[in-house]
Design a protein around this nucleic acid. Structure first.
Lengths: 231, 231
DNA sequence: TACGCTTAGGTCAATGCGTTGACATAAGGA
DNA sequence: TCCTTATGTCAACGCATTGACCTAAGCGTA
């Protein structure tokens, strides 16, 4: 794995002060246990050390830094996301379905979402997503280069918006922000913002997630862009 | 300002150990100086304390935390972004132009980009952007609720993708990631990923920014969604 | 079996980080 | 003059990360 420091022939294991023999999989398991513990976001390197019965710094023998560990966890979760997904006969519906699964899985683990949007995990499951998506666009009638380009745009937008939605869930400050926003939208002076004033009663809906609307727009644009000869 | 801890009637100023009288604007100035210093991302609360000639914790009398300070800085930069922008006769072109300005300004300050995508700054310039954008969609012929909804989708997608692009600039690990990606795309087994194999020669272009492509798709979708009676 | 070498990997101590609670003190109103 | 309190300062917390150290695991050789 690219996320471990040493090569694949790891042999020279030494027991921890408390007698445990560390393994990368053990660390991921323990980290997931902490992440999913009640009270949320209980994962810190130091706590992970306690959970494993090892010095916190031992973790750095297996993962370059905390990000690398989180990416390894994300890689495992991508697989779970894809389990049970079978593309249907309609490419647009299937693409939409896959996007929703990715979005939902990221919202289940907000802390990982940020990383997954930004860093390439280089895991086999990441490739599976790309393979399915590009296959769908090819079946729609796009040429090879267009399928690659359009799917790249599509999946990046999905990941970026999912990360955005996930970030809103994280620290608990969401409510304060939403109230501040509602207040500003209720009190701005009409003369400074004439267009906003014209739509004032509709502004409260702006707090809704942009994900469904953007997904619709992207798929609509892709449907329009399908080469005529394939209709 | 919502970002300061005390009310607007701040009066009881006390000189710092080194004789300086702190002001919110001073702190923002000093922070920008550090952010834009060579070597990048030199902003830390402790260094800011040194720069100001004050104890680092004094900053927390003016901003709830580092995020709040960064948001205040972002608010100032939004204004600079908008300076010189005048909507043209074509709503779609104007929207595209505004989106590009926002995107570019975020890339100039990657550290701020993340926050700006996620947190509402509640500043007057944020409202200016919304006012202009919704005005453009109204002029295109959208109803009030549709203009609000569509613009919300649009601006959130722009911010999310800009944050994504900005994140790629930040830590310097971009190159390693890109090479890892290129390698994976060059070496995956054909039989496991048949669709990817079919487009293999085109995969290298997937490292390009998704922003222009998504922007095109969003504007295309909006153009299609304009009510017929307005054509 | 025994010896010695290399080195993976566990541990320790220290760095700088954001943040907070306790404390001190001066500004300014009464 | 006194009292309230805004705000600067200090010490401390837990955080991620790193470099130095140490020790035993596993190898080659005899």
């Amino acid at each position: 794995m690219a996320t471990t420091r040493a090569g694949s022939g790891r042999v020279r294991r030494r027991p921890t002060r408390s007698g445990v023999i560390l393994e990368p999989e053990m660390i991921i398991d323990a980290a997931l246990r902490l992440i999913e513990a009640p009270g949320g976001n209980a994962l810190t390197v130091r706590r992970l050390g306690v959970e494993l019965g090892a010095d916190p710094s031992a973790i750095y023998r297996y993962f370059r830094d905390l990000d690398a560990l989180l990416i390894a966890i994300a890689d495992r979760l991508i697989g779970e996301t894809l389990a049970g997904f079978v593309p249907g006969p309609d490419w647009a519906d299937s693409l939409r379905d896959m996007a929703r699964r990715v979005h939902d899985s990221m919202l289940r683990h907000p802390r990982l979402a940020q990383l997954r949007a930004i860093r390439f995990t280089a895991g086999p499951n990441e490739l599976r997503v790309d393979d399915i998506g590009i296959g769908l666009l090819l079946s729609a009638g796009f040429s090879a280069p267009d399928a690659v380009r359009h799917f790249g745009d599509f999946i990046d937008a999905v990941l970026a918006l999912a990360a955005m939605d996930a970030a809103e869930l994280a620290p608990g400050q969401e409510e304060a922000d939403k109230r501040a926003l509602a207040k500003v939208y209720a009190t701005f002076p009409d003369e400074d913002y004439p267009h906003l004033a014209a739509v004032r009663p509709h502004l409260r809906q702006i707090t809704a997630s942009p994900f469904p609307g953007v997904l619709d727009k992207l798929i609509a644009a892709l449907s329009e862009a399908v080469p005529r000869s394939s209709h």
